[in-house]
Design a protein around this nucleic acid. Structure first.
Length: 206
DNA sequence: ATCTCCGAGTCTTTACATCA
DNA sequence: GTGATGTAAAGACTCGGAGA
């Protein structure tokens, strides 16, 4: 056992007055000194008392069952449980206090691991979405380049050709054929009921 | 002001595992 | 197999705050 007993504690404080303990835990040193604990309540030193410390399986079962029913312990229930179990009401109260504390820390641990899992899932999803945004931006960039090419070609054509004699034969290479328009339907999508005059469509993407 | 109860923090004991 | 040592779990205690 690696325990430092009270007498050893006294020795430590005598050997290090204002020493390492002040440096490490100044607030504790300044605080009110902790009362020294008695080795054992009641029949101190009795090995019989020590051996009875651990509760029997039956006692544990009943306490656990009672705890499941209700975490709080009213004094009537405490007294009833104590007499059923053959324990001191104080023991029952202490057992419930400890049980509540340990239940709470277990809940906190569970909640923590749940949140951790959620966080990890969110990080992965975020990464996936960021990649998708990058891909879409690339697609958009490509589409804009195609529009620019088309615009320039159309403007060249307009300025070179006589206004009265528009002909598809003047387009070299063919006006749309070369661009493989599959996949660009959305880029050039115009609602059916929304007729656009002349060069207005070019301005849509300006 | 006093009492009681509770949560938080800590100490102590017990039971079990590991290692030389 | 055995004793020493480490460690987790659980029982018990102290302290301080809140409410009656």
């Amino acid at each position: 056992m690696n325990q430092i007993d009270d007498d050893q504690m006294v020795l430590i404080s005598q050997y290090y007055p204002g020493g390492i303990y002040d440096q490490l835990l100044p607030e504790q040193v300044e605080a009110k000194p902790r009362r020294r604990r008695k080795k054992n309540k009641g029949d101190a030193g009795s090995s019989e008392v020590m051996r009875k410390r651990k509760l029997s399986e039956q006692q544990m079962n009943l306490l656990e069952q009672s705890f499941e029913d209700e975490h709080k312990l009213e004094s009537e229930r405490k007294d009833r449980l104590a007499s059923e179990l053959g324990l001191d009401p104080r023991q029952v109260a202490v057992w419930f206090q400890n049980r509540r504390a340990r239940w709470k820390s277990k809940k906190i641990e569970e909640e923590y691991s749940k949140l951790k899992t959620q966080h990890e899932t969110t990080v992965v999803e975020n990464c996936r979405l960021e990649n998708e945004v990058l891909k879409l931006k690339e697609q958009l960039c490509e589409a804009e380049k195609e529009i620019q090419k088309l615009t320039e070609r159309f403007e060249r054509f307009s300025s070179n050709s006589p206004s009265s004699s528009f002909s598809m034969e003047a387009m070299e290479p063919p006006f749309l054929g070369e661009f493989g328009m599959e996949g660009l339907e959305n880029v050039f999508y115009v609602p059916e009921n929304n007729y656009i005059h002349g060069l207005d469509w070019v301005n849509l993407y300006g």
